[in-house]
Structures are given as C-alpha cells and as structure tokens.
Design a protein around this nucleic acid. Structure first.
Length: 661
DNA sequence: CGTCTCCAGGTTTTT
DNA sequence: CCTGGAGACG
C-alpha cells in the first residue's frame, strides 16, 4: 500500500464527522483522497453511500481508475464525478418534479448566447449596445446570487426573465441550472431530498477552494445530517473566482460543521527546493491568504531557468529544442513534459514548432472537438431529434444545408409559435398541416420535408439501436459533404471537417457498444458530451505525448519538466483580468503559483521580447511576477543553449532595464 | 425571398 | 485569423 506521513494518515483514518484538509500544492492530496476512500471500503462502508466530487471529469476519471486498480474489485455504485455530472444524475431522475420533460437538453456557453440573442431579437432589444458574452456572464451571476440588479443592468431584467422562460419552453437547462435545479427540487420536495440523504452518507469534496456558493449549498443540504464530510482544498490554488468559486466556503464550512477536525498537509513531495522556494516567495506576496509554508527535503535542485526568445515562433523552437536535448540526457518520456500557457490562443505557435520537430504532443482544453462548427452542426441535429422543442438547435439546422427556409419563413413560424406559445418545431408541424398557412407552396413543401426528416430519424434513433449507423445515414441524407464543399473553398479543409463528423459517428457508435453504459440512449449520450468540453484522450491510444495546455487545465497535474510560455506583461497577469478588477492581481498570482508548482524537477520560464498580436508585432515586457522571485533562484539561459556568464549579466541587466521602462 | 460576398470587429480562464 | 452580420444580387 501507499506510504503516508502522520498528517496524511490522520486525513485517511478519521472517516466519521466533518474534516477539513488544507493540502498545499504537491502534498500528496490525491494519494490521501484515494487512500481514504479505499480505507472506507475496507471498513465495510457500502460503495453506494460514498459520493466524491471533483472539479473536472479528468480528475474524476483518474481517481476512479486508480481506486479500482488498487482495490481490484469492480465498483459500479461508487460515485466519483463532478458537481455538474452529479447534478445531471439527479435531474435525470427528478426533473419532472419541476415540470420539465426527461429529455431535457443542456445548453453550453454558445447555445446560451444564441438563446440570449434570439430572445433579445424577440423583445426588440437594441442589439448593438449588447455584448452577448457579458450578458451571459451577468445572467449567470444573477442566477447564482452573486450580484443583484443595479441601475445599469436593470434594463436587462426583462430579457433575463424571458431567457429563463424560453429555456423552460425549450425544455433546456444551462450549466447553472445543473446545480440550481437540484437545489430547487430538494427544497420543494423534502421526500426527494430524504431519498438522497438515505443513500449518501459519506461525502468528499476535492478542490474545495473552487466550489461555488451554490455547489456548497447543494452538498451541505445532503451532508448536514450525517456530517461525514471531508473537504480538501488549498486557498492558494483558487483560480476560478470568475466562475463563482468562493473560498469563503472554507470559512462557511468551519461554521456549518463546527465540530470539524483540521489536517494540514505542508510537506511537498513533488518539487525540488528551488522550485518550491520560488513558489513560496511568489505566493507570500498575496495579502489575502492563510499563512503557510510548504517544505521539502529534496535539496540541491536545479535553478529555475529563464529564457527570453525573440518572438513566439522562436519561443516554440526553443521549447522543442530543449525537450529534445533533455530527452537525450535523461531517462524520461514525452509525457513527463508539460508546456503551460495562460490562454488557449498561445498554444498555436508552440504546436507548430512541435509539429516541425516531429515531437508528439496533445493539447487539452481549447476548442474542443464538440465545439467545432461541423460537430456542433451534426450534434444540433441529434439534439433536435432528441428534443424537438429545442429552438436554439432547430434554428441552427433548419436551413443547414440550404433548404430555402430563410429569415422570412422563420419569422412567420415564430409568430405562430408565439401565438400558441409553443416551440418552433410544433409551429412548423402545424404550418405544414394547416390549410390556411401563410406560407407558399414551395416553402410548405420544404418545411414538410424537414419535419419528416426529423420525425423519421427520431423514430429510428429513439429505438436505441444502431444509433451510429442512423447518424451516418442522416449525414449522408442531408448531403453534409456537399454543404461543406460549398462552404469551404479548400477541399482539404472540407475533408478534415467531414472527418470530424465521422469521428462523431464513431464516438456515438463506441458509446453504444461500451458495456459500461448500461442503457445506452441518445439523451444520455447528449448529456454526456455537453459536460465533456475537453477531449478525453483514449486511454488505449499512444499516451506518451508532451502535454500542452492552459494553466487552468493543468491544475491537479504534475510534470517532471515544465515550460511556462508567454510569461509576459499583459498575459500573466492577464490585462483583461486586471481591467475587470484590480484585485484580480491576487488570483493571477495564484495562477502563476499553480503553474510553477506543477514542476517536479525542472522549470523553464519563457518571456518573449516581442509577440504577434492580431497580425501586428508588438514589443513585450516580462511579467511583473518575475520580480517576486528572488534572483538567486534562477539563471538566464541563452537562446543558443549554453551561455557565458557575461551574457548572463547582460541579459539580466536587460530584464531589469525592461522593468524600469 | 433566399443566397452570396465582403467587411468589420473581437479573441482569458471552463463545467 | 475566424466568425457573424449587413447589404447587394439573383
């Protein structure tokens, strides 16, 4: 079994009553959680009474895989998932209590924005003064009680109410609803709450610092009677406040579960002394934190290395070269490298360099498979087939490929729909049947064909058999290939996009035949893919690849060698973040802290002298956070590998000069 | 009335 | 650099 220190053992063995584990970066947190669950199982606690909540699907999968590996038994009833998946689980069984149908559909950020757009049109809001991104953010904050209406936002109250109304009419929910609706069900139906309280008796919340107020509310309502709840977190790694993460939850926990035991894990097993010292120094500049000091007995680590490439292209090349030379001198694998960036757009230049050098890599985060236009198109068909009342997705496909059903037709359908207060699909069905339809013959016929198409595939797919085949035939039926060719002039682009739709078919077919899915059906498949915004890499594929990702998605991971690219002013900390609120500087610092503490042995920090922004080359300065790290912890590396001490001095002077600018 | 073409504007992080 | 929207055209 895994070796544990005294503090870790405390966290593993005290399974009754509330427990707060403050686990610093690299302190063996995952090990503790896994051991704790295995310990519970060994003591005879039933697997179905355990609920472990994680922050990402990736973390959930990893955890359950490792537990099964160690425990060597099947654990079909052990629940390890994200808050959102847990919400879906509850809604799948109980959503009818709120008057939704069970084939509800989950709207992602894009769908949500489309719905707001559509609703705004309906209410004749002036479009130009609205930013849908901000509007969807505002609505989320309102829904989750993070802000109140103010004199400026009040004008959008009507839009918000109508948005909520439309969601329900379309039998759809957004991400916030996945937490809010279960809370609502529990509040309004105590018998349902009791059912879940009777089932779950042991709770574990990972990344507790990143839970939102409503997530805490949900877990609290389930755990407050049995009181066996273990929260594991680290305030220094709270990097999701923009999404509602509220580390006051740690304080709330201490009040609500006041008999709690506390364990602090401060020994770091991950990083060398130099890396850890740098991280400690950096994070100590934050005012708003619980004081702590991580320590390690791994001494004599290498210095941190700072490199100043000319531009982002050069940056990619340097990383690729470094990876190669480290691989030659050390016994490590591709997957032991992590390349971290602040924003998804920064991966591009690095990817190009890795491709040129034939280095295998995988990107996590960013535009995921399911967000690609061509995949969303086909998924939109599936969504309408599963839930014809889903107007947002219906609008996406009604004239894709072109069927001659344009703006005017939709306008007329909308009028009918509003009159009868029904969905567009119902109004389309009605219009086809009606004798006094205001639509021309040609259009009625096209509409009829569309409605029949959906109904035909609906019957086919809801039988639950051969969904993959049906989908393929649907794609051929609508001649999506011809559509792609007409949309994209370059044949290879169209081909690539068509391949993605084929991959979607494969993914559906694989889902269907996976024995782990007890009752495969279209609804479950759709719910599943809306929660997996990231491509989950097949475990059986070649997994030895360099990891390229945003800092946010690197949370919880560790790598032998880490490169942090683009450590420049306005990127880390990000200009937009500071623009929003000056106080965000502390969260940005935590973000950099998370990046640094991913490294076990070697840490490279790259800061370009110039960078191509929107097609324009701009001079850049190093990140102000580099000033928080003591000089004696890093060295400068010349861009042509080894560097003379003279160069080091001049380069160092260069950096200092840059700060003075 | 639908489609095609061209142009401007916007690009933090994620379930 | 890619998307979405406005306006011309058929």
């Amino acid at each position: 079994m895994i070796k544990l220190n005294d503090e870790q053992l405390k966290a593993v063995n005290n399974i009754n009553g509330p427990m707060l584990v403050l686990a610093g970066a690299g302190s063996g947190k995952t090990r503790v959680i896994i051991s704790r669950i295995i310990n519970m199982l060994k003591k005879g606690i039933s697997q179905s009474s355990i609920l472990a909540l994680t922050f990402t699907n990736k973390a959930a999968n990893e955890m359950s895989t490792r537990i099964k590996q160690i425990y060597k038994k099947k654990l079909p009833k052990l629940t390890i998932c994200t808050f959102h998946s847990f919400g879906v689980k509850i809604l799948k069984n109980e959503i009818d209590k709120l008057g939704y149908k069970k084939n509800f559909c989950i709207y992602d950020t894009t769908d949500k924005q489309s719905l707001i757009k559509e609703t705004a049109k309906e209410l004749e809001y002036k479009l130009e003064e609205m930013n849908y991104y901000n509007m969807s953010y505002l609505f989320s904050q309102i829904k989750t009680n993070r802000v109140e209406w103010d004199p400026f936002t009040e004008q959008y109250k009507k839009l918000f109410v109508e948005y909520q109304h439309n969601l329900k009419v379309y039998n759809s929910v957004d991400f916030d609803d996945l937490i809010l609706l279960p809370i609502k069900i529990f509040t309004e139906h105590p018998d349902v709450l009791k059912k879940y309280k009777d089932r779950y008796k042991y709770f574990l919340v990972d990344e507790f610092q990143d839970t939102s107020e409503i997530q805490y509310h949900l877990i609290k309502s389930l755990a407050e009677d049995c009181r066996n709840i273990c929260a594991v977190g680290d305030d220094d790694q709270s990097i999701y406040s923009w999404r509602g993460a509220c580390f006051d939850n740690i304080i709330n926990f201490e009040i609500d579960f006041n008999e709690f035991k506390e364990v602090r894990l401060e020994q770091n097993y991950r990083s060398t002394d130099k890396i850890l010292l740098a991280a400690n120094e950096l994070i100590s500049k934050n005012q708003n934190r619980k004081p702590k000091k991580l320590w390690t007995n791994k001494n004599k680590g290498e210095l941190l290395k700072i490199i100043l490439p000319e531009n982002e292209k050069h940056e990619g090349q340097i990383i690729a070269e470094r990876v190669k030379s480290i691989l030659m001198k050390n016994k490590i694998l591709y997957k032991d490298f992590g390349i971290l960036v602040r924003a998804n757009s920064l991966t591009r230049s690095i990817e190009e360099a890795l491709l040129t050098e034939n280095l295998p890599y995988k990107v996590s985060g960013g535009m995921s498979f399911f967000q690609r236009k061509e995949v969303k198109d086909i998924v939109a068909y599936l969504r309408v087939i599963a839930n014809p009342d889903d107007d947002v997705n219906l609008l996406r496909i009604i004239n894709l490929p072109h069927r001659g059903l344009g703006k005017k037709t939709i306008e007329q359908l909308t009028i009918i729909a509003r009159k009868k207060s029904c969905s567009l699909f119902s109004s389309a069905t009605a219009a086809v049947l009606a004798s006094d339809s205001p639509l021309s013959n040609k259009i009625t016929q096209a509409l009829d064909e569309f409605v029949s198409l959906i109904n035909y595939y609906r019957t086919k797919m809801l039988s639950g058999k051969g969904m993959g085949k049906s989908l393929l035939s649907l794609i051929e039926h609508i001649d999506y290939w011809a559509y792609l060719l007409s949309e994209y002039k370059k044949a290879n682009v169209a081909k690539w996009k068509y391949m993605n739709t084929e991959n979607l078919v494969n993914s559906l077919a694989e889902y269907e035949k996976d024995p782990d899915n007890l009752n495969p059906n279209l609804f479950e498949y759709l719910n599943r893919i809306s929660l997996f915004s990231r491509e989950e890499n097949d475990e059986n594929k070649n997994n030895d690849r360099i990891n390229l990702m945003t800092i946010h998605s690197a949370k919880g991971l560790e790598f032998n060698t880490v490169f942090i690219a683009g450590v420049e002013k306005d990127i880390i900390p990000h200009a937009r973040s500071l623009e929003e609120n000056e106080n965000n500087i502390e969260e940005e610092r935590r973000l950099f802290y998370v990046a640094i503490t991913r490294a076990k042995k070697r840490l490279y920090i790259l800061s370009c002298k110039s960078r191509n922004k929107r097609g324009k080359v701009e001079e850049t300065l190093p990140s102000q956070f580099l000033e928080d790290i003591p000089d004696n912890l890093f060295e400068f590396i010349d861009t042509d590998d080894v560097m003379t001490s003279e160069d080091a001095v001049s380069s160092f002077g260069q950096l200092k000069d840059m700060f003075k600018k």
